[in-house]
Design a protein around this nucleic acid. Structure first.
Length: 1005
RNA sequence: GCGGAGAUGGCGGAAACGGAAUACGCGCCUGACUUAGAAUCAGGAUUUUGAGAGUUCGAAUCUCUCUCUCCGUACCA
């Protein structure tokens, strides 16, 4: 037992924790609750890599810390188990996604348990389990049965809405939804069932809408945006076209303002909040109506700058705009149609990538309602149908895009805002948000802010415009034409969708996972499932984010069959106090969860309207790939003559050796010599170092390849050729020469770029090919062969080392590359701790001896630092503090139980296994999990004296010890008497003496 | 373009409040133990905080200007 046998220890305690159910929590009103949650993992076939546990380790530390501080901590784990990869795999192999998913989950759990996480597995949930998705379907049903009342500003029951319709129709209803003609109570009674449902679809929070989707005829399926690349399917590269299909939507736009406001009351990183704000994209402005000359048509535009309306010299409609065909003149019709056809054949992506200015005149003219001026109407791709009204008034003088368009089509550019400096408006637009109005009739002279106000007021009085708020946020598409997802609890009969009463609607088995070829999901082919006496089942399934939008609620009461969770448990566990996860879900999961939470709050099901009180985004752990960069370098330069031109050091790397004539000359040259000056100025200045020996001057150029010098080719070296210290076995790699490198290729490391370039001729020309070893940091992925498996780290060093090391790497929130190089240090620390407690023969050394004052100081310093650090999620500095403490205790030869015991409690959240083992050795029979966090005693740290640094003009020159309670004047006097100080003063009196008690003394002379 | 974060030794990174810059770890060098390696122990070196200015007795920290890097997002009117 002399050595630290982490394997036995870790296995022993993992079994102990499991068999004694030590991680199981129940609601307990006598204790304060704390809810720690990790983002829901999708169990991929690749298993975990070392980047995944980073957040889990951090949240586990907080869990154990809070528990030691007396909190009742909920720390569950489960799986977001519906998803595309399992389905793709099923299509290829015919294997049921449920089977692969189950196998992957098993693997994940094994990997997680090896790291010793304190998860309460009894609360595990899986989104693909019918007992779980029953409630996902139930929540969808609630959305279907709800509408958004703008008067009360919350979601309400659709039944109540119907009873209002029955009495007074919809005239007094203010709602958020699709536009709907007004009707009376009598009208409502006379509507057919179909008509009634059509109206209700405008109100429901879950509704169907015909929209265009990315349809791939070759694959016979609808594709998600991220599956489409440059207008082709990512898989197969087939053409993707836009096809109109009926899709389900959730009316998230009703919550836009509340989603925006709610950001102010949650502790999330500013960057994530900002991303959500931008995504919601609230902008205030005006909608203005322009009449079309010689037509009854009226075009509504949205603008945030109504003040610039007098500078509007043309109008642009999106190619999809519905009025185009009715206003285009006969002479332009053909060209307009051609332009529209061209625009529609492009994918959304192509349109975004193509920045070229293009457009087409419709032949029609709009009338500016402010001054009755006629302005031409164009159509152009740069105006998006989906934003605002799909039409803009173009103000080329003050909008860059409008300016570019005006230039291309030779349209008028009229300046209406004047800034401080004069600008040439014909050259470039002046997109200023401040300034004074000119050329603008009644608003001339006003500043922008007041001009906006005045313009809107004027428009409202005359009835051709209103103040309007616009959002970028769109309603959330909720349909997927897939098999492996939650079925909708919906039946269609006579074109009317209705809810299924009995939940869950379970996923049937299918013969084939291939899409049905009609654009519908594989479910459409299961005739006996689809066709029921009550109607035809909805065959779409829900998107991946459905199950993950509410899973944190299910953990509170995972086996409840009566409700998604009981009101009592929802009340007890409440919000998630700490949510740990990656930043990549900023606009997906994190926004949808907030939306669902607000909805359930409106229904009175929960009494909080934000799901995650505090959010910490752990950084990504990247992989390091060793590579060979194939580079071609050429440069030339001449060193002699009247006009020497040195090669730009930025273009060269390697080591430069100057020999012969030039070196000799440079050494002998006087300092004023032109060549020498030039040489030093251009060349050597940019070297890190250079030295002159004998007849040589050598210097290292850039230790790195200049960033603008792209390698012609990058070859990745598999990890098997890289040892623990990161050195690459190039010989072996080259021997296996799978990459057809030229014979006799030599490869050099970045650190020793040893290609020597000699300059000794009058001029030098170099054209060389290099094979240079390098490291690139990139995402860990199977594809790059740079994945590090935590199992391997556990095998070699143990879980406690892995946990400590991941925390020690750097601040939690930062991204950092994984490197095996530092891991020995943390492992060594655990061994040092072990050796503090055991001698070489395995005798336990800890006794009841009274601790020294120094040891008490080391302990209490650690209590303070670690407690503070955990509160601030600064785990890397806690690990440092543990190292410092153990180093100090070792040199103090501390064997005192009263020091080691509390230290183990502090360490147990970080390295739980070794802490439990030593804790038991100290004679404790109950798990360290149930111990109490030690209290920091400030009196142990109080010093009576302080070694003051004495600085003169800001630079430390000596140190003198003074009692801490000594007053400023006495310190000043004593300092002046000091020998070293006297020497610096040279007999003069200092101008000023600054004494900061307990810190520093500074003399100004 | 817009938004966010950041720049400290050879490397990862420490430094509430402005008060001894580089704690802790890795790597490197020297020495001890050892047949040798591994392990362990003792000792050592490097840099002046991206650049420039300002405030201050004193700036990594505060203010301004600039440069660069990473991340997110983008024809949003």
């Amino acid at each position: 037992m002399g050595i630290y046998n982490f394997k036995n220890i870790e296995q022993k305690w993992q079994e102990h924790w499991k068999s004694n159910e030590l991680f199981k929590v129940t609601e307990d009103d006598s204790k304060q609750k704390y809810y720690v949650l990790d983002m829901f993992p999708y169990p991929s076939g690749a298993g975990l890599h070392v980047g995944h546990p980073l957040g889990y380790i951090a949240s586990d530390i907080v869990t154990r810390y809070k528990r030691l501080n007396g909190f009742n901590v909920l720390h569950p784990m489960g799986f977001d188990a519906f998803g595309l990869p399992a389905e793709q795999y099923a299509i290829q192999t015919g294997k049921h996604p449920a089977i692969t998913t189950e196998a992957n989950i098993k693997r994940y759990k094994e990997q997680l348990n090896r790291i010793g996480f304190a998860f309460d597995w009894s609360r595990e949930v899986q989104t693909c389990d019918p007992s779980y998705y029953k409630w996902t379907q139930w929540i969808f049903s609630e959305f279907f049965n709800a509408w958004y009342n703008k008067k009360t500003n919350k979601a309400e029951s659709i039944d109540q809405l119907i009873s209002i319709f029955e009495i007074e129709g919809n005239v007094n209803i203010e709602y958020h939804g699709d536009p709907c003609e007004s009707f009376t109570g009598e009208d409502w009674e006379n509507f057919s069932a179909q008509e009634k449902e059509n109206i209700l679809q405008c109100y429901r929070l879950a509704f169907q809408k015909e929209t265009s989707v990315n349809w791939c005829p070759e694959l016979g399926t609808v594709l998600a945006n991220e599956e489409v690349k440059d207008g082709k399917s990512e898989r197969g590269g087939y053409d993707v076209i836009q096809k109109k299909m009926s899709q389900w939507y959730l009316r998230i736009t009703a919550y836009a303002d509340r989603l925006l406001d709610g950001l102010n009351k949650i502790e999330w990183s500013e960057s994530i909040k900002e991303i959500q704000r931008n995504w919601i994209g609230k902008s205030e402005g005006a909608s203005l109506h322009f009449k079309v000359k010689g037509s009854a048509a009226d075009i509504e535009v949205f603008t945030t700058r109504p003040d610039t309306v007098f500078g509007a010299s043309f109008m642009v409609l999106a190619p999809e705009h519905e009025l185009i065909s009715s206003i285009s003149t006969d002479s332009e019709k053909e060209a307009v149609q051609a332009y529209i056809d061209r625009a529609q054949s492009k994918s959304e992506r192509e349109r975004m990538m193509n920045k070229e200015v293009s457009g087409c005149f419709t032949g029609a003219y709009a009338i500016n309602p402010f001054n009755q001026k006629e302005i031409p109407i164009y159509i152009a791709e740069y105006v998006l149908a989906g934003y605002g009204t799909g039409a803009i008034m173009a103000v080329p003088a003050h909008d860059e895009r409008d300016h570019a368009f005006a230039k291309k089509y030779n349209l008028n550019i009229v300046q209406v805002v004047e800034g401080k400096e004069s600008v040439n408006i014909q050259e470039a637009s002046y997109d200023a948000k401040e300034g004074r109005m000119i050329n603008s009739e009644m608003i001339n002279g006003l500043d922008v802010k007041n001009a906006i106000r005045a313009t809107i007021q004027f428009a409202e009085e005359k009835g051709f415009g209103t103040r309007t708020i616009n959002y970028k946020l769109r309603d959330a598409g909720f349909s997927r034409q897939r098999y492996w997802g939650e079925p909708f609890p919906i039946l269609h009969k006579d074109g009317i969708p209705s809810l299924v009463d009995e939940l869950p609607v379970t996923l049937p088995d299918v013969q084939s996972y291939e899409p049905a070829g009609t654009g519908e999901s594989p479910l459409a082919r299961v005739e006996d499932w689809v066709n029921t006496p009550e109607g035809r089942r909805e065959t779409d399934t829900m998107p991946g984010w459905a199950g993950s939008s509410w899973y944190f609620l299910r953990y509170m009461d995972p086996n409840n069959d009566e409700a998604f969770a009981s009101p009592e448990k929802l009340k007890y566990w409440n919000q998630v106090d700490l949510y740990m996860g990656g930043a990549e879900h900023a606009t997906g999961h994190l926004l949808y969860s907030r939306f669902w939470t607000k909805f359930l709050y409106d229904l009175g099901r929960i009494d909080f309207d934000e799901p995650f009180k505090k959010l910490i985004n752990q950084g990504m752990i990247q992989g390091q790939s060793r590579v060979i960069n194939f580079i071609r370098l050429s440069f030339s330069g001449s060193f002699w003559g009247d006009n020497p031109s040195f090669p730009d050091p930025n273009e060269v790397f390697g080591r430069v050796l100057l020999t012969g004539k030039l070196a000799q000359f440079l050494q002998n040259a006087s300092n004023q010599d032109f060549v020498k000056l030039k040489f030093e100025e251009i060349f050597l200045k940019k070297y890190k170092k250079y030295k002159v020996t004998n007849n040589e001057i050598s210097g290292s150029l850039h230790p790195q390849i200049p960033s603008d010098l792209d390698p012609i080719e990058v070859i990745r070296i598999p990890l098997e050729f890289v040892d623990k210290n990161g050195s690459v076995n190039f010989e072996l790699f080259l021997k296996e020469n799978k990459y057809n490198l030229p014979e006799n290729t030599s490869i050099f490391d970045l650190s020793e770029a040893n290609e020597i370039i000699e300059y000794h001729e009058e001029s030098t020309e170099v054209h060389k090919n290099y094979f240079q070893a390098g490291i690139i940091t990139e995402k860990m992925s199977k594809r790059w062969g740079n994945v590090v498996n935590p199992d391997d780290v556990c095998d070699e060093y143990g879980a406690d080392t892995l946990r400590l090391y991941e925390m020690f790497l750097g601040p939690l929130q930062d991204s950092k590359p994984w490197s095996t190089q530092g891991i020995d240090g943390t492992h060594r620390f655990l061994k040092k701790l072990w050796n503090l407690c055991f001698d070489q023969d395995g005798n336990f050394l800890i006794t009841d001896e009274t601790p020294s004052k120094d040891s008490l100081k080391s302990l209490h310093k650690t209590i303070k630092k670690v407690s503070d650090d955990i509160e601030q999620f600064s785990f890397n500095t806690s690990v440092s503090q543990f190292m410092i403490c153990v180093n100090e205790l070792s040199s103090q030869n501390c064997k005192s139980k009263s020091i080691i015991e509390p230290l183990l409690i502090l360490l147990s959240p970080f390295a739980p296994h070794i802490s439990e083992e030593l804790w038991e050795k100290l004679g404790n029979t109950e798990s360290i999990l149930n111990a109490q966090w030690p209290e920091y005693d400030e009196s142990q740290l109080v010093e009576s004296v302080k070694l003051y640094p004495i600085s003169i003009n800001g630079k430390t020159r000596t140190q003198i010890e003074f009692p801490l309670d000594m007053d400023k004047n006495t310190i000043s006097e004593k300092v002046l008497e000091d020998e070293v100080v006297q020497k610096w003063l040279e007999g003069k009196a200092p101008k000023k003496i600054i004494v900061v008690p307990g810190r520093i003394v500074n003399l100004v002379i």
